[in-house]
Each structure stands twice: as C-alpha cells, then as structure tokens.
C-alpha cells in the first residue's frame, strides 16, 4: 500500500515545512521523508487508531486547554500559600471504561499535564488507574469530573 498512515504522513510533512520554511523543493523533500517514515512505521505494525467522531477533537482540545490553564493557576496559588494550607493530597483509584490504547494514552497525557493530578499506574485487568491528586477534598467529585469531562468525550471520539 502506498500510504499506510495518511494522517501521520501529513503531520510529518507539515512539521518538515515548519522547520525548514516553505518552498517547492522542501515540499518534495518533506513528502519523501514522510513517505519513507510511514513505511518504516508500517513495518513496526502498531495498532491503527480508529477515529469515529473526529469532529469532537477540537472540543476536547479546547476543554483541555482551558482546564490546564485553570488548574495551573489553582496549583500556583496552592504553592504560594505554602505551609498554611491543610494537608489534602492523596491517592485515588479511578475505574475506567476506555480500553482503546490511543484513548488511554491521551487520557494519561491530559491528566498528567494538568497540574494537580498525576497518573501513576494503570491496571489493564481491573481497568483501574491509580492517580495522585494534590488537592483531594472530595473523591467522588474528582472521579465524576474526570469521567464526565474527558472520558465521555474520548469514548465518543474513539470507536
């Protein structure tokens, strides 16, 4: 097959053009690099992620963008308050419904990039993940937020 991973190839070409500036010569060179790179990846045979509702991706990106900004500010104030704050951090065991590997990886990236929650360990048998949360006041509320805000969207995006 000519192009085993079309999205990856287009992304690689875009990256090449960003790094080197646009010209027709660079376009040809970048296309060649993208082609050979996707053949190389095809020989590794990773699972191909199946996107179902790709138009929800911008929504996910905006939600995550805003949430990361908000929790940045929240954690910054927590740190600046220093020792005066009560000790509220703790571990949290979160049951998950997602099984798709790409969706799991995305959820891990979202939760770790958000200051205030860190992904520690995933158990594929129980389908639970161990999180550490800096400001753990209400466990149920944390679980509900993660499931409602991110997991539902990811479940819809990935088949």
């Amino acid at each position: 097959m000519m192009l085993p991973y079309p999205i990856l190839a287009v992304c690689l070409l875009l990256m090449w053009l960003m790094l080197n500036g646009f010209s027709w010569g660079q376009l040809v060179l970048g296309a060649l690099v993208a082609l050979f790179a996707s053949w190389a990846l095809a020989s590794l045979r990773p699972d191909k992620p199946k996107l179902r509702k790709w138009w929800l991706i911008p929504k996910l990106v905006t939600v995550v963008f805003v949430d990361i900004l908000r929790s940045n500010l929240a954690v910054a104030t927590l740190i600046l308050k220093g020792k005066r704050r009560p000790h509220t951090s703790g571990f949290l065991l979160l049951p998950l419904e997602i099984e798709n590997k790409t969706a799991l990886a995305l959820l891990a990236i979202i939760l770790t990039s958000t200051p205030g929650s860190a992904w520690l360990e995933y158990d594929s048998r129980d389908r639970t993940v161990l999180l550490h949360v800096l400001d753990l006041i209400d466990e149920e509320q944390w679980i509900a937020t993660i499931k409602h805000r991110y997991e539902a969207l990811l479940l819809e995006i990935f088949a």
Binding site: T112, S113, P115, H132, L134
Partner: peptide, 16 residues
C-alpha cells in the same frame, strides 16, 4: 513535603 506531591509542581513549568 512528599515525593508524590512534588511530582505535581514541575508540570506548571512544562504546561503553561
């Protein structure tokens, strides 16, 4: 104070 709490702080620098 603890390692798992310290884990959260550098993500401020790495995200925004």
């Amino acid at each position: 104070p603890t390692f798992y709490e310290r884990l959260h702080a550098p993500t401020l620098g790495t995200s925004w």
